[in-house]
Amino acid sequence: METEENDGMLEIRLVRIRGHVQGVGYREACVRRATALGVTGWVRNRLDGSVETMLQGSPEQLADMCAWLSEGMSAALVDELAVTEVQPPFVRFDNFERLPTL
């Protein structure tokens, strides 16, 4: 990871997903979808039963990823998607990974 002060169209969103999203393979599916879209960042379970993800990419990539997150996957039931825009400067992620539960 490296710090980027001016990255043009690169944006970051912190997203909290609530609903039935743990124990159904949601994080692994999230990693696969983010990788396919070229989105970088991370995803992790939260102790409150939600899933949290940091997404980095172009506005179009982030819109596509957030649309996928809200639909989830067939085994997940997403009740709420809370999206927060992260302002620069920020760290640039090299890939998308699954982090331990927080």
Rank of each mutant, 00 (worst) to 15 (best):
Q61E: 03
N95Q: 15
G8F: 11
L14F: 12
V15N: 07
E85I: 13
A36K: 03
E4L: 13
V51N: 06
W68P: 00
E80A: 04
L102R: 15
W42N: 14
G49A: 12
R46G: 13
L102V: 14
R16E: 14
V15D: 09
Y26K: 01
D64M: 13
R16V: 09
F93P: 04
D79M: 05
V51E: 06
G38L: 00
V24I: 00
F90W: 05
A75D: 08
V39H: 00
R27L: 03
M9R: 08
C30Q: 07
V43D: 08
D79G: 05
V78Q: 06
L81E: 02
G8C: 08
R27H: 03
V91I: 13
S74I: 09
S74R: 10
E97R: 11
F93Q: 11
R44W: 11
L55E: 08
G8E: 07
L69T: 03
E71G: 12
V21S: 04
R18I: 04
R13C: 08
T40L: 10
E11R: 02
E11A: 04
R13P: 07
M1E: 07
E85A: 10
E97D: 10
E5V: 08
F90L: 02
M54G: 09
M73Q: 11
V83C: 04
L62E: 00
L14H: 14
S70M: 15
P100I: 11
L10M: 09
L81N: 05
L62I: 00
L37A: 03
D94C: 13
E28A: 15
S70H: 15
R98E: 13
R98C: 15
A67S: 14
Q56H: 06
A76H: 00
A82C: 10
V51C: 07
E4R: 12
T40F: 09
R27C: 02
V15C: 09
E52Y: 08
F96I: 04
E28P: 12
A63L: 14
C66H: 05
M73G: 13
S74C: 08
F90P: 01
A36M: 07
G23Y: 00
G19Y: 01
A82R: 07
M65A: 05
L69V: 03
M9I: 14
V83Y: 05
W68C: 01
Y26N: 01
L69D: 05
D7F: 15
V24M: 00
E80I: 00
S70P: 12
P100H: 07
V86E: 08
C66I: 10
V43S: 11
G19F: 01
D7H: 14
M9W: 10
M54W: 10
T84N: 14
G72V: 06
M1F: 03
